[in-house]
Structure formats: C-alpha cells, structure tokens
C-alpha cells in the first residue's frame, strides 16, 4: 500500500471513493510544505497539480496593478486549491500563496489525467466531485459579488 493512502482516504473530497480509486490518487500524491509568503503556484504557469491543505492556510491571489496582491479566497485544512489542472489549457488563473506555515498534499494533475484515460469510472467520479467543488465556489463568488453586507440604497 502506498504510504499516502491513509491520508488520501481521510480527505473529505475523496470521502466514500472506492479503495482502488484512492490508491490511484495516492499514487499521484506527494507531501509539500510552504513557508509564509511562498508561492505554491503562479498565475499563468502550467497547472500541473492541485493542493489539499493538511495544516495552515493558502490564499488565492490576483495581482492588480496599483493595488498589489488581492486575496480573493483562502483555503484551510482539508480544503482544495486548484482545478485548473482539470480544464484545458491547464494554466493557473491565480497565484496560490501560503499565508502561514502550510503543509499540503500535492496531487499531480498530469498523472491523474493519465489515469482517467484508462479508467473512465475513476475519471467520472473525480469530475463529479470537482464539479461540486466548482459549484460551491461559484455560489460563494456570486455571494461575494452581491456584496450582501453592503449598503444598497
């Protein structure tokens, strides 16, 4: 058994997946750590992996000229940063930066995509889970755009 399998099995995103699929995921996983301020990913670079935070906090940031780095979302324990690895052209849309000392599981997107090609059921399962994640983020982004706490005369 791959040493990261128990960790993968404990991640809510993969909750309830078949053991053989968890093994496939673990085979594409590695542990990473980031010091505060370190970049886990840079905007426009190849999105060849995504992260599941195990401890600490990552920020999704965008650089706005004249305004500096703007944090649009933070990702904490057991949460996922990145789905660009799943969608062509596989480029990061944002910077991903550690706000605190952060340990994470890095999942190799190219490795996973390769396995999807050979196991459609696995690919479908992962697509379903990421679709939910994307919908949650979309809902959250809509709420942020609505500025529900603002004054609306």
């Amino acid at each position: 058994m791959h040493t990261l399998s128990p960790i993968v099995a404990g991640i809510p995103l993969f909750d309830g997946m078949k053991p053989e699929h968890l093994e496939l995921i673990a085979g594409c996983a590695s542990n990473v750590r980031f010091d505060p301020g370190a970049f886990a990913a840079r905007h426009a670079e190849a999105a060849d992996r995504f992260f599941v935070v195990r401890q600490g906090r990552l920020a999704l940031q965008v650089h706005a000229p004249g305004r500096g780095e703007l944090t649009i979302h933070t990702v904490g324990e057991n949460e996922v940063a990145g789905w660009s690895w799943l969608v062509p052209p596989h480029r990061w849309h944002f910077d991903v930066r550690a706000l605190t000392p952060t340990r994470a599981l890095a999942l190799d997107g190219r490795c996973l995509r390769g396995k999807f090609e050979h196991d459609y059921e696995f690919g479908y399962e992962m697509m379903q889970r990421f679709a939910q994640l994307i919908v949650q983020r979309l809902d959250a982004a809509s709420l942020q755009l609505l500025d529900v706490y603002g004054t609306h005369d």
Binding site: T71, H73, T100, L143
Partner: peptide
C-alpha cells in the same frame, strides 16, 4: 491574514 470568502464556507 485571516480568512477570505463567504461565511457559508
């Protein structure tokens, strides 16, 4: 350096 996002998250 705190959390950014919506309260539901």
């Amino acid at each position: 350096h705190g959390l950014v996002g919506v309260v539901t998250s």
